[in-house]
């Protein structure tokens, strides 16, 4: 059974969002990492890139699979977790600690379309 944390928001494509001020911290859920198996590479965007909600912003790779990452909210990337470049296994070890990007929310209203932990628990299985 994969871990789901209360207080975070979740997307259907298994990203989680933690809102800190006007900034959305984004990662992938524990369910997503367990489905992938050993993650070998995280394809990261650059600081300053902008994404629309639902747009692809990167990818996770394992030995025999690849999974695109979709930005749950619109906005500009203000920080990238470059630590994942050398240590992609951190996503496996602690999916909620290993954030991937931070995005400055351009439309906070979009947050309303994301799921809470209970709603996500229903699809993450």
């Amino acid at each position: 059974m994969s871990k789901i944390i209360e207080g975070l928001l979740y997307s259907e494509s298994h990203e989680w969002v933690k809102v800190e001020g006007g900034i959305a911290v984004i990662g992938v859920s524990d369910f997503a990492q367990s489905e992938m198996g050993d993650i070998t590479y995280v394809d990261l965007p650059s600081e300053g890139d902008s994404f629309e909600a639902g747009e692809e912003f990167g990818a996770l790779e394992s030995v025999k699979a690849s999974s695109e990452l979709y930005c749950p909210v619109s906005g500009e990337v203000v920080e990238v977790n470059t630590e994942l470049e050398a240590s992609p296994e951190k996503v496996n070890e602690d999916a909620y600690g290993a954030w991937i990007i931070k995005v400055r929310l351009s439309d906070p209203a979009e947050l309303e379309s994301l799921m809470d932990a209970a709603a996500y628990a229903a699809i993450a299985k």
Partner: peptide, 13 residues
């Protein structure tokens, strides 16, 4: 190695 770049996994991507 690095097969996640390739067509049999990524298909059109």
């Amino acid at each position: 190695t690095l097969q996640a770049r390739e067509q049999h996994i990524r298909r059109e991507k």
